Simulated assay, not measured.
Amino acid sequence: MSTSPHRASDHQPEDRQDTVATGRAGHNGVLFAMCLSLVLVVASVSALNLALPDLAIDLSATNASLTWIADGYTVALAALVLPLGAIGDRIGRRNVLVAGTVVFGIASLAASFADSTTT
């Protein structure tokens, strides 16, 4: 029994140029969307780290408390990765990414208008 080698042209579409151009543009769009989402998350964690000295003063927090605040925020974000990934597999990754980015943006906007009270 002999096997015949597969030729590269057997599995490629007839108009390969259009497919390659569209594929690259699609990959660049996905890369841009993922980088933008990552920038939003990193910016929020950085903003929290910048706010830690003020939180320490306002809340009279110890170093251990500040560590819990920073780690709790990061763990909460990380804990959402698996369940939202499963939801993305069911209803579409793009839809979940857009919805998550919108919810995150609205929450960040609401937090920026929060009034701090001093006693």
Score class of each variant (00 low, 15 high):
Leu55Val: 09
Ala110Met: 13
Gln17Glu: 15
Leu50Gln: 10
Arg90Ile: 07
Ala61Glu: 04
Leu36Phe: 14
Leu55Tyr: 10
Ala61Gln: 03
Gly72Ile: 03
Arg7Asn: 12
Phe32Trp: 12
Arg7Thr: 15
Arg7Met: 10
Ala114Gly: 11
Val30Gly: 03
Gly105Ala: 14
Ile106Met: 10
His27Ile: 08
Asn28Asp: 07
His27Lys: 02
Ala70Asn: 13
Leu77Trp: 05
Ser65Gln: 15
Thr101Leu: 05
Leu38Lys: 00
Ala76Asp: 05
Thr118Asn: 10
Ala56Tyr: 00
Glu14Ser: 15
Arg94Gln: 12
Pro13Trp: 05
Leu59Arg: 13
Leu31Arg: 12
Leu84His: 00
Val41Tyr: 02
Gly85Gln: 07
Ala43Tyr: 05
Phe113Cys: 11
Leu82Thr: 06
Ser116Val: 15
Leu59Pro: 03
Val45Lys: 01
Ala25Leu: 13
Phe104Cys: 03
Ser4Trp: 02
Ala56Lys: 12
Leu48Ser: 03
Ser46Leu: 13
Gly26Lys: 04
Tyr73Cys: 03
Asp71Trp: 05
Gly105Asn: 07
Ser65Trp: 01
Arg7Val: 14
Phe104Lys: 00
Thr3Gln: 14
Leu82Trp: 02
Arg94His: 12
Asp18Trp: 05
Leu52Pro: 01
Gly92Asn: 07
Asn49Lys: 08
Thr19Phe: 14
Ala99Phe: 05
Thr67Pro: 00
Arg24Ala: 11
Leu38Gln: 08
Ala51Cys: 07
Asn49Phe: 06
Val42Asp: 02
Pro83Ser: 03
Leu59His: 09
Pro13Gln: 08
Asp115Ile: 15
Leu31Ile: 09
Ala61Arg: 02
Ala76Met: 09
Asp115Gln: 15
Cys35Ser: 10
Pro13Thr: 11
Ser60Lys: 14
Leu31Trp: 14
Leu80Trp: 01
Ala33Cys: 06
Arg93Lys: 12
Ala33His: 00
Leu77Lys: 00
Pro53Ala: 10
Met34His: 09
Ser4Asn: 14
Ser46Thr: 15
Arg24Asp: 04
His6Gln: 13
Met1Tyr: 13
Gly85Asn: 08
Pro83Met: 02
Leu31Gly: 06
Ala47Ser: 14
Ala99Ile: 12
Ala111Phe: 14
Ala56Cys: 04
Ala79Phe: 03
Ala61Lys: 04
Ala47Pro: 01
Arg90Ala: 12
Leu82Asn: 01
Leu109Ser: 11
Phe32Ala: 15
Ala8Glu: 12
Arg16Gly: 04
Gly85His: 04
Asn28Val: 11
Gly88Ser: 06
Ala78Met: 11
Ala70Gly: 05
Ser37Ala: 14
Ala64Trp: 00
Ala79Asp: 06
Ala56Phe: 03
Ala107Gly: 09
Ser46Ile: 10
Leu38Asp: 06
Arg24Phe: 09
Ser37Leu: 07
Thr117His: 15
Thr67Leu: 10
His11Ile: 07
Ala51Pro: 02
Val81Asn: 00
Trp68Gln: 10
Pro53Glu: 06
Val30Ser: 11
Arg93Cys: 00
Thr62Asp: 11
Val102Trp: 04
Ser46Arg: 05
